[in-house]
Design a protein around this nucleic acid. Sequence first.
DNA 1: CTGAAAGCGCTTACAG
DNA 2: CTGAAAGCGCTTACAG
Lengths: 338, 338
Amino acid sequence: MAQVKVTSAEVARLAGVSQSAVSRVFTPGASASKKTVQKVREAADKLGYRPNVLARAMVSGKSRIIGLVVAYLENQFYPVALELLSNALQARGYHILIFTAPNSTDGIDGVMQDLMDYQVDGIIAASVSMSSDLARRARQAGIPVVLFNRGQDGPGLSNVTSANHAGGRRVAQFLLAGGHRRIAHVAGWQGSSTGRDRQAGFLSAMDEAGQRPFALVDGMYNRKVAAQSTRLLCSGSARPDAIFVGNDHMAFAVIDTLRAMRLEPGQDISVVGYDDVPMACWGAYDLTTLRQPVNRMVDATVSILLDQIETGESRPARIEIEGELILRGSARIPEGWT
Amino acid sequence: MAQVKVTSAEVARLAGVSQSAVSRVFTPGASASKKTVQKVREAADKLGYRPNVLARAMVSGKSRIIGLVVAYLENQFYPVALELLSNALQARGYHILIFTAPNSTDGIDGVMQDLMDYQVDGIIAASVSMSSDLARRARQAGIPVVLFNRGQDGPGLSNVTSANHAGGRRVAQFLLAGGHRRIAHVAGWQGSSTGRDRQAGFLSAMDEAGQRPFALVDGMYNRKVAAQSTRLLCSGSARPDAIFVGNDHMAFAVIDTLRAMRLEPGQDISVVGYDDVPMACWGAYDLTTLRQPVNRMVDATVSILLDQIETGESRPARIEIEGELILRGSARIPEGWT
DNA sequence: CTGAAAGCGCTTACAG
DNA sequence: CTGAAAGCGCTTACAG
């Protein structure tokens, strides 16, 4: 019969061994005789004993908790990443303490402080930036931090992104090869590294081709802003023949808006997104997009983080993972394009 | 200058007070003289001290951690709920430890055990069922559990759902009033209470009207299954004039499939979903659906849980929140319908 | 292999 | 109000 919160001392008493012996039986790298192990397991089962993770954390200094800071959960990219992250971490014996972040830099700092109070072993910050002061504090506290899907200019934090500059270039080249000459860019939020890098890549390839964008607006990673920009862009007499949108989440809004204006993506105008969230392949959108390989981004994030936790080594790593352009129906495909 | 992991003893030394005094200054209901408070705060600031939440948890028996079990993060309903839940809990000084659940009942049991090892103060299980054995263990351990968006037949767990039976009835009445006479139901997973209740409500209203459903299939809350069912349903010579789909997530797949067959929802056939996820109002789908009031469901969940935690009282509460039919373009609207 | 003991960083009666 | 002390439930040297 299990009872309320059994302790190792009670198990020890029932098993007729010391409390240390019980602890050893439940400690992975233990040393205990078969006889002891058996007696203890039996007693533990009878009482329904399980070690108190918090007590273990206190003495070992390892909580096996990873703090995860997220925002933008409406953008399907993040729930997907969250699920993968959680699965990967769970498989390695870690769990995620979740913090939903305000989108301002100082909002984030308060959250980080909270996180550190929980003695997390490491922190993953998804789609948020961080003050260099905060980064320094985490480093001083010896807590590894990795930025997921966000770059960092300042001090040495690890981060994992896809190759956003290259991706932006690729989209520009694709659109240009398709014969488009009035290409607008509804950019990702220019306050974020991803937004800036994609735009910079896009512009650099345009520039090399001697082209200027038809228009350049900051979509703020926001559907409303993206929709309104689209309306503005397409209501004049001269309208773009293609729109490169800073992420899929906005691209869906762009497509909805275009259709409301009787413009069909892939026929009247080409639309390209960024991310390749699951929804991108749904029939209603069939969106051509630059895929961010979320699986590989997650794997890299987890292995960097756990590596730093387990070795104590904290040389910041910067991983950039190559993306791939996924061809679907929302944009004209150049002849002979590979 | 902050240094690595400052303790209350170090603050005490610098401030020239006892370690207990430091603790009191950082304990909400403390009693300390202004002088002490000031000296301690000063010293703490200088050293960058913050109480170790884990240590506090151990002695107080309150971790201020809520375990959240989630599955189905692809269904937009859950990320939305997760974000709201996290915000509400953060505002009250709690944080979420997240567990992604396998969808089987015994998978869930292992996860719950993990959860309890972390000494969580309470558990929210979203969209999962739980064995009665597990429920009993949580109760014995004195950990309140509330089921979010899932009912429970067995023993006394608290749960919060929307009025699924009534919702199913409402949809049937709506479709019938619209003159549909060949109404199919691609049901929510019949292994879940939500799936069953919606279907039962739907059937009861049909029955009262002397109608039989055109077809009844279990969509398993799965896009692929829903799409395939739709194809089957609509490829014969006789096809339904309306489809009630067990949730929005599947309804999007149903609509995509219909369009691929050149059937336009709202004109050639009516489609009604369940949930009203944000995506439901996007232009591409414009889905008529029975709204689950996620805000109110979250509020109820949080207040039940925190109430039980704070009072120690654990009488199971069962809350059912009324939903509303949201009229959009995917289904014909009966004349004079209110 | 095993037990007694110290200690992780706190909170909380208990005296004063 | 304040300090000394016990204790939360563990892990981990340290002897044996």
